[in-house]
Design a protein around this nucleic acid. Sequence first.
RNA 1: GGGCGGAUAGCUCAGAUGGGAGAGCGCAGCCCUUACAAGGCUGAGGUCACAGGUUCGAUCCCUGUUCCGCCUACCA
Length: 839
Amino acid sequence: MGHALNTVLQDVLSRWKRMSGYSVLWLPGTDHAGIATQNVVEKELALKGLDRHKLGRDAFIALVWKWKAEYGGKIIHQLKRLGASCDWSRERFTLDEGLSRAVKEVFVRLYEEGLIYKDNRLINWCPRCHTALSDLEVEHEELEGNLTYIRYPFSDGSGHITVATTRPETMLGDTAVAVNPHDERYKGLAGKTVKLPLTDRNIPLISDDAVDPSFGTGAVKVTPAHDFNDEAIAKKQIPPLEFISVIGAEGRMTADAGKRYAGLDRYECRRLVLEDLTELGLIEKEERHRYSVGHCYRCKTITEPLSTPQWYVNVKPLAEEAIRVVKEGKIRFIPGTWENTYFSWMENIKDWCISRQIWWGHRIPVWYCREMKTEQCRAQKGVIVSRETPRKCPFCESLELVQDEDVLDTWFSSALWPFSTLGWPDQTDDLKTFYPTSVLVTAFDIIFFWVARMIMMGLKFMGDVPFRDVYIHALIRDIRGQKMSKSKGNVVDPLIMMDRYGTDAFRFTLAAFAAQGRDIKFSEERVEGYRHFVNKIWNATRFIMMNLKEGEVKSPKNELDLASRWIMSRLALTADDVNEALGDYRVNDAASSIYQFIWHEFCDWYIEMAKDELENPESRTGAIWCLLYTLDKTLKMLHPFMPFITEEIWQRIPHAGSDIKESIMISDFPASLQRDYEAEEDMSCIMEAVTGIRTIRGELNIPPSLKLNVSIKPFSDKTEKILKKNVHYLRRLARVDMVNIGMDIKKPEGSATYVKSSLEIYIPIKDLLNIEMEIKRLEKEEADLEESITFLNRKLTNKDFLDRAPEEVIEKERSRYEELVQKKEKIMVSIKRLKEAEV
RNA sequence: GGGCGGAUAGCUCAGAUGGGAGAGCGCAGCCCUUACAAGGCUGAGGUCACAGGUUCGAUCCCUGUUCCGCCUACCA
């Protein structure tokens, strides 16, 4: 669903810009999703009782490629099914030859500049995926656990010190106990040693400022090989503390954990350690404790800090530039609040661990010389970093070279996407034409993974930003607001939605839901609603086509009537709204403008009004032309949202003049059409009259089949003229028979009244036996008016308001007040008359 | 621990720069009016989470509170 929303938003923007005359490149492609993909294939292997090690590296990778060919096209298929107007001839994959070349180039250059280096330190390790993860790839989640207080006896037999821990099993790797140097309780104890229970080791008691005296006992066990804090403490000590790894790559205890524990799973070991300590009477107490634990973002396994050699990028210098361009407005986040998120991460950025101990990905372009025959080679530690596979060691000519086993983080190649896909490192025409790109559309959950890194790499290697706008859209959640995930089983399949409701309805739903910055709780009912909308359009077209006669298409025969002028003006307004909204990435506003126009103006009003003319062939002037014209423009406006039905219909309707193109998707998007304010104003009188009569009918339960005799008293000459000229609209839309219009009309005895701002309507109801209902209706309206009048009166007699509010606001409120008072008086008169008539 | 966002109709959500709140669905009433009953017309329904403050005036701005959600962090 996330991909679907993302695709629809990009497609709406692409189609809109393309129709607006721009040369639009939307380059499709996929990344190789290293860990995730490898996991899937490994699972399939496991079902056959195999694993990748039995298969061997080359065979395994061949298998993943096969899998990729078979299933990897699914995303592309979905894109196409959604109607994404990408340039399919340029489809890219991060493991393509070209992109791989870019990856190597970037790696080598960063290495040569000293920005890529190898180091042995603690990293987050996933024991299940069997690889290092970057900080970002670890998801922290709060868990309920125990805080265990354990007694460590002093080596000299003078009692004990108690430490508190959430991970008792790691005590097997403790190499110190630390206290805060200012903690009075432990004054003078630093330098003593304690005997580490369950082992035969004695470890020092040290002091360090990082220890918080208020937590636990104020004394902390130090396990440098399995805890980031402890690692920092250990490295500060002179000499540094020893690192003892008691947990291995599989999440099992190592031989260093001792015979009794070696080979156990880390959690089994925890149980056993606790048992053993209990037996020894060394557990002081246990407390319930909430603490956050890291999980692998791909398989949700609890990660383990392990000390391993990995490759890192020193991203600080890159991040500084990346912060600057956003601060200077060269890149704009939409909505802008995301800039804060971006800054806070960038400003505290840590080195990026880029090596992964998996096979599916870009193999690190580093070789090691086995022999290191010369001094120079040894000085380089036999490390060869090269764009091409080296035949022999450049330092000592040895032929004994082995390539680094690791692959790069998938995001490393994704970071290059804006330029690697355009042919970089070659200076291609595409690169010159399309870099920097206009906009990146994505969800906020990958701002750090992807957006930030593209900005850093783009600036570094292209010397310019990769895109000008970053449009961050909402994340789709299920109806309860939960993130959709396979494991929760709350995933909605876009393909099923499209099968069920049609792609256009589905697309329109996503577009209409896409309010900026918000999460979207997906509801299937909404899709169903928009399917109705699609039908509505189809039916409206059917109606127009039914009424089409030869030769009426080219141009209006005569001057357009009021309704036609009105709908064209409303069309112009809608086009302005849509263009403005899309320009601001308010895709949902654009969608609802079009929806409102088509359904409630074009269908509900204009088509109904046009029927009058269509049914009287001799008086046909321009309505059919106007229907077609408006339909044509409407389809174009709707096209970015609903490409399928708009194309289908557009191909079937006749087109006038030069506007004939082979596809709606390359026709001109409506813009800068002429408004007709006079028509809109005049039309509002007609609409007031129609809705007024309908309201009376509805509220007094007068059946539609009963044709009414209506009197209308306009408040001005102008209104009178308009009404008289367009009285045929009233007959049809309000289903009235006789209409009396005149400023001097007196209210007939016993009639229902409706007071509008430009006119007053009377409908005789004496014979309809519902005078009482009408009195009740009017009394309610009077009460409502009274309330508003009181409110406005209070406001308008408030001296402070009159003194300080802007003149235009006061004037507006004053005229509203006048209007309401007049309306109320008229209603009171009506009530009086009706009561008389009733008697 | 730090930060961000949300709380508006029964439900799902819109509400640019402060001037008595809107849509879709649902609900009620009336309609098979020859494009559409997957439709038309009409209507009911809201102390805009709570408490203060700024202002002539607050759903909107400020402060605090409560309840949700998210991001981020090395409290063992």
